[in-house]
Design a protein around this nucleic acid. Structure first.
Lengths: 208, 208
DNA sequence: AACGCACAGTAACATTTATCACAGAAGATT
DNA sequence: AATCTTCTGTGATAAATGTTACTGTGCGTT
């Protein structure tokens, strides 16, 4: 166990790993579980050790506008920021691949910042990388048109999962980009004509 | 001096105030100065004691897409995040009202986090509030149409400056919302017809 | 085989936003 | 006063995106 946590968070010191194991609790959640809801108070800092979590903003119409994904070795920046003041969450977090997470009581957050250099660095780095990711989202919606955003979206998918197939329906993609299915279908068809993708049912193959 | 810094940052402990005065340097910058540029390395953490700084993202066409403003008592979250790893900035920072800022060498950042509880809290709170502000920006561009965004923009202006007048040209507003002047003119005209604003040259009065 | 259902393609149309073209109004400069 | 510049207003048009409506297709269930 010590070993596996160390593998997933290689930068953590051994003492920190032990401390986490003493104070945190490992929990499993199934795909579809909503771990955090807009307006909800946050009671734990969350480290992901397995699976994948989607962080998104919910539109009035139920759209799930994608901010970013959390994967093993990462942590929820929002939960860190908010726990520090026990604030309300401003986003939604949904499990998209069965996860195992380490739940850490909020009091530990501050304490460890002072006691564990590697925790401090991890937290700062988490803030930085998530902030950057959100800035990139802003860039995309502010400056790019839908076809560019769609291409970017698909590229990001294949980058994070390491494969060339995106197994999502047009409807799901539309929801994450806050547009309609028809638009996604149209744009994908154009991309297919340009030879960038091959379209199958519930699957998009990236060719280039 | 000790007194004034304490007034602007009331939560800072007296020891922290003294430490800041020993290690930081006060600097003035005129309106129009660009304090930070996309891609530039960051060497200081910046505390604002006077004036106003605009944080924005630059479009290819030179647009200045507004993220948020920094005012006295606040700090640049980006500079804090990036200094910690001496990373490149992802944004632009421009003085929009002559400022006085306290520049703090990046080495202090980490050191004080451990030594000064009030600094730690300030930094965490800065992260949190800026993150939230950026999330709100995402909300606006993702889910709202231009007329709503314009109303929100004007409201935010009057909230932060405390007055009912916005002294900007339509062109400047258009740039910050990444749209064109014509669109802003038209939408403002509609708002005037609805009795929400009164339009003067280089000034918009908010009526409600 | 027949049916139901989620997914995908597409045409027609509506709406929003961007762009172009031009004109007038308010200040600033000479 | 005459001239210039910047800011604002507005019509015409184009382009992108959203909406409606309908069709077809693959797949699982009965």
């Amino acid at each position: 166990m010590q070993n596996s946590l160390k593998n997933i968070f290689p930068n953590f010191s051994n003492e920190l790993i032990s401390t986490i194991e003493e104070n945190g609790s490992l929990q499993d959640f199934e795909t579809g579980t909503i771990l955090m809801r807009t307006g909800q108070y946050i009671k734990n800092t969350v480290l992901i050790t397995k699976g994948k979590i989607k962080i998104y903003r919910e539109g009035e119409d139920g759209g799930e506008f994608l901010m970013y994904y959390l994967q093993p070795g990462q942590a929820c920046a929002i939960s860190m920021i908010c726990t520090a003041k026990s604030e309300k969450s401003q986003i939604m977090a949904k499990v998209v691949e069965d996860v195992t997470v380490m739940m850490i009581p909020l009091q530990m957050m501050d304490k460890w910042m002072m006691e564990h250099r590697t925790w401090y660095e991890f937290v700062i780095d988490t803030y930085r990388s998530r902030f950057e990711e959100v800035l990139e989202v802003v860039d995309n919606i502010a400056f790019r048109s839908m076809d560019e955003r769609l291409e970017f979206y698909l590229k990001r998918h294949s980058d994070t999962c390491g494969c060339q197939e995106v197994n999502l329906s047009h409807q799901e993609i539309a929801s994450e980009l806050n547009t309609s299915r028809e638009v996604v279908s149209r744009l994908l068809k154009k991309m297919e004509q340009r030879g960038l993708v091959k379209l199958n049912r519930n699957q998009i193959e990236l060719l280039k």
